[in-house]
Simulated scan of single mutants.
Amino acid sequence: MAELTVPGARSTTLTSVCIPAYQAERHLRVTLDSVLDQTHPNLEVVVVDNNSTDGTAAILDELTDPRVRVVRNPTTVSMVDNFNIAIRESRGDYVKLVCADDTLMPDCVQVQAAALDAMPHVKLVSARTDFIDDDGAMMRPARGLGKIVGRQPADHVVRCIVRSGTNPIGPPVAAMFRRSDFDRCGSFRPVTSFLSELDLWVRLLELGEFYGVPKTLAAFRIASDSTTALTSARSQLSQVVGFADRLAADPTWNVTTGDRVFGRLRSYDMQLRRTGLYALSAVRSGRRRMKSRAARV
């Protein structure tokens, strides 16, 4: 039976929060504030500026917290490459990747680090996330995990991925893992335009178990100009279905025909929901811009 209690012991393990940043001036300060406000006592923060041309560099120049280390790419690299650079620059035993527009609850790092401390066979920890819009307003609370709360064997989690038609583990901000396991399984890969994290989660699960924290510990921004928002719905659906088919074809995961059929049907519904969320965020952002312009007239 899955363990449903979040480990309560305090962790002191050095944990790296890695923030890949590109053209991030709009939300970067909020993200940094949420990371630096963590209760975890042994924290390093690695920010990689991907050769931004907006105000990102100026924000980073203002930082004085000794826990923060800034790395600047001399040229702009791909999003996935920047993710990998950020993690490879880390020095902690545990790693958490936080995109430069997402945020953490104050106890996020402590809770997830304590879970990894307590369960050495667990290779990936994730938590529920709130979905927020461009301006930080709530869109959907406490998303993710579903039937993978608590300690779970890897094959059960992968079957749930296939059946869900989406990514029940969550985006990078929801997860934490060991740096040594990241090195072992080969880092993020550009397998699709928006499923690179799910590809990494599955490869981490090849090494051991999963733990789903039954608590909301982060917020994921449904940004109207994000990679997902700019990827066509047809392409997203094709990528999700293709990824699930590859998992189902691997006998390691014991995926049944029923899992595959159910997931294929559910993927259409989840794509409609995903497209609707990003469209709603864009509409909200447009309305705010119109109100702002009207107020200036």
Rank of each mutant, 00 (worst) to 15 (best):
P7D: 02
T15M: 04
I19S: 00
A24D: 08
A24I: 01
D33C: 06
L36K: 03
V47M: 11
N51T: 11
T53H: 14
A58G: 11
L60Q: 05
D61L: 01
E62T: 08
T64F: 03
D65R: 09
T75M: 06
T75Q: 09
V77G: 05
N82Y: 03
N84T: 09
N84Q: 07
G92I: 06
G92P: 01
G92W: 04
D93C: 04
D93E: 15
L97E: 00
D107N: 15
V109M: 04
Q112D: 02
A115Y: 00
A115C: 14
A118D: 05
M119K: 09
P120R: 13
V122N: 00
V122L: 00
A127L: 02
M138F: 04
M138V: 06
P141S: 15
R143V: 12
G146C: 00
V149Y: 08
G150W: 05
R151P: 00
Q152N: 13
H156D: 07
R159Q: 13
C160W: 03
I161K: 01
S164C: 11
S164F: 06
S164Q: 07
G165R: 10
G165H: 10
T166Y: 14
N167A: 11
P168F: 02
I169N: 06
P172H: 06
V173Q: 15
F177N: 01
R178I: 10
D181I: 07
D183V: 09
S187H: 13
R189E: 14
V191I: 14
S193T: 14
S193V: 06
L200H: 02
L204G: 01
L205R: 01
V213T: 09
K215R: 15
T216V: 15
F220R: 07
R221E: 05
R221C: 12
S226E: 09
T227W: 09
T227K: 14
A229S: 14
L230A: 11
Q236Y: 09
Q239F: 03
F243W: 10
F243P: 08
D250Y: 07
W253D: 00
V255R: 04
T256S: 15
D259Q: 11
R260E: 09
F262D: 13
L265V: 11
R266D: 08
D269Q: 15
D269L: 15
M270T: 14
R273K: 15
Y278D: 03
R284N: 14
R287K: 13
M290E: 12
V297Y: 08
